[in-house]
């Protein structure tokens, strides 16, 4: 038997035991460090930088502090037409279109629920049908945009060919300033509805069959059953569908860029596209101004993000309590 000293005098083992003693407190930080640092560097810091940029007049060359001119809130004055400036019409169009996107995009939620209910059966080959209905979501938005712009073509497009069968004149959807935005939103709804559908299909699997049976015995069916028994149980799916649809609506860049490039006559611009146009496109090079638009978009998004985080926080508290 060896005698172990009451207090270790070996410095190496003292150091090790310090780590050992604090292992549980230290480990999470060691595991977090790479991810958090990376995220701070590439995501959190740029948000602050954009806020700073929005106070400058800068053409993107060199460094903003040496080549840019500090103008305070001037960019925002120009956007909103404050302080004697004329309000930016393009900005207003973009804002207005974003609102259209937000409202119409929400149609993906009932649409997805409807298709999910339609497909929630156990007939032969239904799994393949479900996958094929989901198909549009897996394709990149670039391809969705191309597919729909060809679908809408006034002469070659299938849509107008079909309209022709019913004896109507062809409509140039993407060339018409009043229709173009709706045409793009319809293209966006295609994959988004597929996404909501898959959320609801998964949700419907988890619906408690006993509750459905009990409700059936009480004489509930059809709409009543759906509204009072099924939809409350689909709440988690609805929440996620809502989150991803709102985010998707405000992120609508790819489709606008591919299908119309903001046209015709700037009628399909949305904020995300306008930021890009004002900075990186050849018509742009107003980086400070673009940053101000980005900040506005960010603040709109922040309202929703705060709501999402708040409801997630409520869930967390519920899970702990």
């Amino acid at each position: 038997m060896t005698m172990s000293p009451a207090v270790s005098t070996d410095p190496a083992s003292a150091k090790r035991s310090w780590y050992k003693r604090n292992e549980i407190a230290l480990t999470p930080w060691l595991f977090l460090a790479p991810g958090v640092l990376f995220f701070l560097f590439y995501v959190i810091m740029p948000i602050y930088q954009s806020f700073g940029l929005s106070l400058y007049d800068w053409n993107g060359l060199g460094d903003v502090r040496t080549n840019g001119e500090y103008v305070g809130l001037e960019n925002y004055n120009k956007l909103f037409g404050l302080n004697g400036e004329r309000a930016d019409r393009n900005f207003q169009t973009s804002l207005w279109n974003n609102l259209k996107w937000l409202i119409l995009y929400l149609l993906a939620i009932p649409g997805g629920l409807f298709i999910a209910l339609f497909l929630n059966q156990t007939v032969r080959g239904i799994r393949l049908y479900k996958s094929l209905f989901f198909f549009p979501f897996v394709i990149s938005q670039v391809v969705v945009g191309l597919v729909f712009s060809w679908f809408y073509l006034p002469n070659e497009g299938l849509l107008n060919t079909m309209i022709g069968w019913f004896g109507f004149d062809s409509v140039n959807i993407l060339g018409d300033p009043t229709l173009a935005t709706y045409g793009i939103i319809a293209a966006g709804l295609w994959p988004q509805t597929a996404y909501c559908m898959i959320l609801y299909l998964t949700g419907l699997n988890a619906v408690d069959p006993e509750q459905v049976e009990a409700a059936r015995l009480d004489g509930a069916k059809g709409w009543k059953m759906l509204w009072y028994v099924i939809i409350p149980q689909l709440k988690p799916a609805t929440f996620i569908a809502f989150v991803v649809t709102i985010i998707g609506a405000l992120r609508s860049f790819d489709l606008v860029s591919i299908m119309t490039g903001g046209g015709p006559f700037g009628s399909t611009r949305v904020l995300s596209y306008y930021v890009f146009e004002k900075s990186l496109s050849e018509r742009g090079l107003q980086y400070g101004y673009a940053a101000a638009v980005a900040v506005v978009l960010f603040l709109i998004m922040l309202v929703f993000i705060s709501y999402f985080l708040w409801s997630m926080y409520q869930d967390e508290k519920g899970a702990r309590g």
Binding site: F39, Q49, I247, L271, S272, A294, F298
Partner: peptide, 15 residues
Amino acid sequence: IAGNFVPFQILMVPV
């Protein structure tokens, strides 16, 4: 979570 939901455009120029 919040960072994951921000619009890409607010990161664009700095990134």
